[in-house]
């Protein structure tokens, strides 16, 4: 199917040039992996006057780790995240999330920055960044700003980005000297699917936990109530059950053709229980391998 509308294509080599192009055009669109954008162009959901391809900007293409902060450039693909040594060794749950995004041919193109700019409720990166309290680095003509993940997502397909701004990177601070995590994603089968619900858990020293849920609310849900209940406590069946009981009150799942709200809600509880145990045992060094599907 051809793209019906016409637009200009630019491939700037610097962020400054990209920002200038963004402010110059009325309806610009940023192209990173294009796995959402090209479909939107075909379906005429987006009809930009200019498409700005950021893959020529060197400074957006790296993964760096410095002073306890992981920085993921806006043009970094999910495949690159999966292959990254520093992610495998220090942030393995990021790789676990990346592995559930699409399949190889999608991951070779799609980027985490693109994922959070599309900001669909089922985005896999949402609960991850919420739990890590990540920062979204944004550049505009008036300069830089950093947005906390919790403030970034404003609704289904709505973010804090302003006109003529470009996401340049995502900063993920290492939450502790040692930590573990677990991402559990509900799809209709084992192959490629969009999340119908997802749970991301981080296990930190001192029996501290972070819990975030995805695809069961317009924006990722950080389950602070559950975290308060968990923190410092021994992970008993009773405690997990107490936490599970809180979940329906924290989320607002919908019924659509992918799943009913009853199943999403039920599965959040199941996924939470399995995820928290996996995260905790990974923290103690004997959990299931990262990337293993727990449901």
């Amino acid at each position: 199917m051809p793209i019906l509308s016409e637009f200009e294509y630019f491939k700037p080599s610097s962020v400054r040039e990209a920002v200038r192009l963004l402010s110059k055009h009325k309806k610009p669109a940023v192209l990173a992996g294009g796995t959402d954008l090209i479909n939107n162009l075909k379906e005429e959901i987006d009809q930009p006057d200019a498409v700005i391809d950021i893959k020529g900007i060197k400074e957006l293409s790296g993964i760096t780790y410095k002073n306890g902060v992981l920085t993921i450039g806006a043009a970094v693909t999910f495949s690159e995240l999966l292959d990254s040594r520093v992610i495998q060794s220090r942030f393995p749950v990021i790789a676990e999330v990346a592995k559930t995004v699409g399949s190889v041919g999608i991951r070779n193109r799609a980027t985490m920055a693109g994922n959070i700019c599309s900001a669909v409720a089922c985005a896999d990166s949402g609960p991850l960044l919420a739990a890590y309290e990540a920062l979204i680095l944004v550049r505009g003509s008036k300069g830089k700003r950093k947005v906390l993940a919790a403030k970034w997502f404003k609704g289904n397909k709505r973010t804090d980005i302003k006109k003529a701004e470009l996401v340049t990177a995502i900063e993920i601070p290492l939450p502790a000297r040692r930590h573990a995590g677990c991402y559990v994603k509900l799809g209709r089968y084992s192959g490629e699917d969009l999340a119908q619900a997802s749970v991301l858990i981080l296990a930190l020293p001192g029996k501290q936990y972070r819990v975030a849920l995805g695809a069961v609310s317009p924006v990722p849900v950080r389950a602070s109530k559950i975290e308060r209940l968990l923190n410092g406590q021994h992970l008993s069946d009773e405690l997990i059950a107490k936490c599970q009981a809180l979940i329906p009150g924290l989320i607002s799942p919908i019924t659509d053709i992918r799943a009913t709200k009853e199943y999403r809600s039920h599965m959040c509880q199941v996924m939470f229980a399995r995820g928290i145990r996996a995260a905790a045992s990974r923290f103690s060094g004997n959990g299931p391998e990262y990337g293993v599907n727990l449901i």
């Binding site: 399949s103 209709r188 089968y189 084992s190 192959g191 490629e192 699917d193 969009l194 053709i257 992918r258």
Partner: peptide, 16 residues
């Protein structure tokens, strides 16, 4: 028809 695509009409992949 609500699912005229492979995003929501799920035919099996090699993993299924």
């Amino acid at each position: 028809l609500l699912n005229p695509n492979f995003t929501d009409y799920k035919i099996p992949t090699a993993m299924d």
